[in-house]
Structure formats: structure tokens, C-alpha cells
Amino acid sequence: MNLDKSKKRIAKKVKAGFKGYPLINIIYQGKTADIAEEVVVEFIFEEGAEAQQEKFKSTADARQDEVIQTALIKIIDRADASTVTESDDVIVVN
């Protein structure tokens, strides 16, 4: 799947708002606010459940990485996520 298509599918799910559980939360992290070098995907099966996490690392900006964005779509589809949230900004981590 190409990058634009993946990003549009994710944006559409995020824009739909809260639709219940399961919930996927996509968090972008990096050493600076400009480049997301890591993506943390949190999966929450039901309210009150502990989040399961999976991380993806990139040498460039993960938001522009076609392989990572396609993997995010596959995770969302396989989890049959009712709700998807995504961080607007890159969270700076050391």
C-alpha cells in the first residue's frame, strides 16, 4: 500500500472519534520535535485493561516511512480496532 493511502486510512479512523474498544493509540517519538524516529502502538482491548505496546524504529521520519505506515494499517485491521487515536506532535524523548 502506498504512503498516501496508508496515511489517509489512518486519518479517517482518527477523525471518526471514539467508537468504543478495542482502541489503538499511535504515538510518535523522537530526539527532536521535527523527526519521529520511533512509533509506539498501544492496543487496549477493553476499558480498564492494561495497554499492550509494540514499537517501530526508523532511521528517518517514521511518519513518512511507507513500510511503517502500512504496518500500522495492518495492525489496525487485524485488531479490528473500533477507535484509533494518534499523537498530533512528536513527543521528545532522550
Rank of each mutant, 00 (worst) to 15 (best):
M1F: 06
N2M: 05
L3V: 05
S6M: 11
K7N: 15
K7E: 14
K7D: 12
K8A: 15
K13N: 13
K15T: 07
K15F: 03
K15E: 14
A16C: 03
A16D: 11
K19A: 13
G20F: 09
P22L: 07
P22V: 08
P22M: 07
L23S: 07
I24T: 06
I24W: 09
I26Q: 02
I27D: 04
I27R: 08
Y28P: 02
Y28M: 03
Q29L: 14
Q29F: 07
Q29I: 05
Q29W: 04
Q29T: 10
G30A: 05
K31P: 00
K31Q: 11
A33C: 00
I35V: 15
A36R: 03
A36M: 01
E38H: 03
E38A: 10
E38F: 07
E38I: 11
V39Y: 04
V39M: 06
V40M: 10
V41K: 06
F43C: 06
F43P: 00
F43W: 13
I44D: 00
I44M: 07
F45K: 15
E47M: 05
E47A: 11
G48H: 09
A49G: 01
A49V: 05
A49E: 13
E50N: 11
Q52E: 15
Q52F: 13
Q53W: 02
Q53L: 10
Q53E: 14
Q53Y: 12
E54Q: 14
K55W: 03
K55V: 14
F56A: 08
K57W: 05
S58L: 02
T59W: 04
A60K: 12
A62C: 10
A62S: 10
R63D: 01
R63T: 01
R63E: 01
E66S: 13
E66P: 04
V67F: 12
V67M: 12
Q69L: 05
T70I: 03
T70A: 15
A71H: 01
L72T: 11
L72Q: 06
I73D: 14
I73F: 10
I73V: 15
I73R: 02
I75P: 04
I75N: 02
I76K: 08
I76D: 13
D77N: 14
R78G: 08
A79F: 06
A79V: 12
A79K: 15
D80L: 05
D80C: 02
A81S: 13
S82H: 15
S82Q: 15
T83I: 09
T83G: 11
V84L: 07
V84I: 08
V84Q: 09
T85E: 13
T85S: 12
T85I: 13
T85Y: 06
E86T: 00
E86H: 00
E86V: 05
S87T: 15
S87W: 04
D88V: 03
D89C: 02
D89H: 08
D89N: 08
V90Q: 06
V90G: 04
V90F: 09
V90C: 06
I91L: 12
V92F: 00
V93Q: 02
N94K: 08
